[in-house]
Every structure is written in structure tokens, then in C-alpha cells.
């Protein structure tokens, strides 16, 4: 039986007006129009532009051409020969490494913090969760900017370390670690909240049972707490990993011009670089990675659900 029948038990008394019988159509029409106009059709067009030909003065012409995808791997030499160039592959690799590292670091901090919060009384719990959520609503650009001050020349962190003998005028900016620092900071709440939600549902007696059976704390964490909170960890990992793959602000501001990620590379093609087909090709590549990742995790979750 479909779930609509469960939500709305059939009403057979004839005098009662049937509530909103044409609601599904008119209710969803605006959504489809807006998303179609602002999102679905445009994404199809991006796919088309990624196989178009670059125009001579920026822009593009509608001639089928795979040059943009080829450009990710090869550089065309003066005589037209194809030469393998790893520069864009490096950017793709950096994107994955930084997004993966961000997810892992967020996870390492989120699990103990979420575990601690879940064990508090209801009032304290609400306050602590509120405090975790709050910084997330501060503009992302300001949260990244705060780290530019902290890590930059003359900022609090270099100053502090200079008193321990670091040469004066040191800056920790414009490298992958700076980008990673800002990414971990901006996405942290997205990991804590789902992990907290699943730890909260965890049956405490299971942990006590583990200890009664002489498991030590580490074994309990590994064999009981982590497996039982896996759904929260997976959704937290998705919520952090997907936006991390598309990060633009962090690499642009913290990484400087050289340490690009896919997001900042795409942005460059539509700004100063002005190579729309190439930018579209990178955007499609990024989108494919994200879609494959989402399908993969959804598939795994479904298979786990069957077994349970």
C-alpha cells in the first residue's frame, strides 16, 4: 500500500469536502518550475557547454569537441602533439585529499564531543547543541577570514609561537594546511549534529554490558559505540565530504593562487581565465564524483538495511 494511503485514511462521508484533491499537482508545480528553470535545465546546458568549442574571445560556439576534457589530462604542444600534464590531475588529487582529510579530522573530534553531549541532562544537552550549531550561521566568508587573521603574519598564532623562538614575521597562510584548517572549522558542525543524533539513540545498557563482559574502554568504543553509531557517522561524512569537494572560498582565500582545488579552478574559468567549456568540463567532472559518491553511499546503506 502506498504511504499516501497511510497518511490520509479514506474519508467516505460524502458531505465532507475532500481536502485539496488537486493539491499534489498545484503544490508541486512551482517547485518543478523553479528547479527546472534555475537548476535542471541549466545543468543539462553545462553538460552541453563542456563538449562545446572555446570561442576566440571568451565564450564558446556550439561545435562538438572533447578538447575540454582532454585538457584535464593533456596539453597540446606547439606542433599539435599531446603531452601529458599532471597539473590539473594534481588539483583533482588535492581536492580529494583535502576533502577526505577534512572529513576524517571532523570525525575524530565529533565522535567524542557528540558522545559527551549525548550523556548530559536534557537542559545541558539542548544548550550545548545550540552552541555547536550557532557558529554555523555566521557567514562562511567571515569564518574563513577569522582564520586568515589567526594564521597570517602578525596574527595570534605566529605571535605566540614567535615567543618560543619562531623567526619573526612568520605566516602560516597560503598552503594546503591553511586551506585544511579553514575547511575543518567551517564544516565541523555538519559532522557533530548527525553523529550526536545517532549516539543519543544508542542504548547505554549495551555499553554497560560490554564492560560487564570485560571489554576495556577502547574495545567498547571500537566494537560497540562506533558500529552502532555508523548511520550518523555516514550521514555526517556525506554532509562534510560533499561540500568539501566543492569548496571555493577556503582554497581561494587560504590557499592563495597556487594551491587550487576543483571549486576554485572552476571559478577561475568563469572569471579571469575565461574558458567556459573547460570550466564546464571541470564542473561536470566534479558533479560526477559527487553523484557517484552519493549513489555509492545510498547503495551501501540500502544493502546494510536488507541484512539487518
Amino acid at each position: 500500500m502506498s504511504d499516501s494511503a497511510l497518511h490520509n485514511p479514506p474519508l467516505d462521508r460524502p458531505h465532507r469536502p475532500r481536502p485539496w484533491h488537486n493539491l499534489p499537482f498545484w503544490g508541486l508545480l512551482p517547485t518543478w518550475v523553479l528547479m527546472g528553470f534555475a537548476l535542471l535545465v541549466p545543468v543539462v546546458i553545462v553538460a552541453a557547454v563542456s563538449v562545446a568549442t572555446r570561442g576566440t574571445h571568451g565564450g564558446f560556439t556550439w561545435d562538438f569537441n572533447l578538447a575540454s576534457y582532454r585538457q584535464i589530462l593533456f596539453n597540446e604542444g606547439w606542433t599539435g602533439e599531446m603531452e601529458f600534464t599532471p597539473q590539473y590531475l594534481m588539483i583533482i588529487a588535492r581536492t580529494f585529499v583535502l576533502a577526505g582529510a577534512t572529513t576524517l579530522i571532523c570525525l575524530i573530534f565529533a565522535v567524542p564531543v557528540a558522545y559527551f553531549i549525548a550523556r548530559q541532562t536534557a537542559g545541558t544537552k539542548a544548550v550545548l547543541i545550540y552552541l555547536v550549531t550557532l557558529p554555523f550561521w555566521v557567514s562562511m566568508i567571515l569564518r574563513v577570514y577569522a582564520w586568515m587573521i589567526i594564521l597570517g603574519r602578525g596574527g595570534p598564532l605566529p605571535r605566540f609561537l614567535e615567543s618560543f623562538g619562531l623567526p619573526p614575521g612568520t605566516s602560516f597562510m597560503f598552503n594546503d594546511f591553511a586551506t585544511l584548517t579553514a575547511m575543518v572549522y567551517t564544516y565541523m558542525p555538519l559532522m557533530v549534529l548527525p553523529v550526536f543524533a545517532s549516539i543519543e539513540k544508542l542504548d547505554v545498557t549495551l555499553i554497560e554490558a560490554a564492560h560487564d563482559l570485560y571489554a576495556n574502554r577502547w574495545t567498547t568504543v571500537r566494537k560497540v559505540i562506533l558500529p552502532l553509531t555508523a548511520p550518523g557517522i555516514v550521514s555526517g561524512a556525506i554532509l562534510v565530504f560533499v561540500p568539501s569537494l566543492g569548496a571555493v572560498l577556503e582554497p581561494t582565500l587560504m590557499g592563495g593562487g597556487k594551491q587550487m582545488m576543483m571549486g576554485s579552478l572552476i571559478q577561475l574559468q568563469f572569471g579571469g581565465g575565461r574558458n567556459w567549456p573547460f570550466g564546464a568540463a571541470i564542473a561536470m567532472t566534479l558533479m560526477c564524483f559527487v553523484v557517484i559518491f552519493l549513489i555509492f553511499t545510498a547503495h551501501r546503506a540500502a544493502r546494510k538495511g536488507d541484512v539487518a
Partner: peptide
């Protein structure tokens, strides 16, 4: 959908 896809892809799509 806007939550699932990277924002930069949607931004580029709107721009084009």
C-alpha cells in the same frame, strides 16, 4: 537537489 550538488556547479549552471 540544491543540497546534494556542489554549489559551484549550480552557480556555473545559472551563469551559463
Amino acid at each position: 537537489l540544491p543540497l546534494l550538488l556542489p554549489e559551484i556547479v549550480l552557480a556555473v549552471a545559472s551563469l551559463i
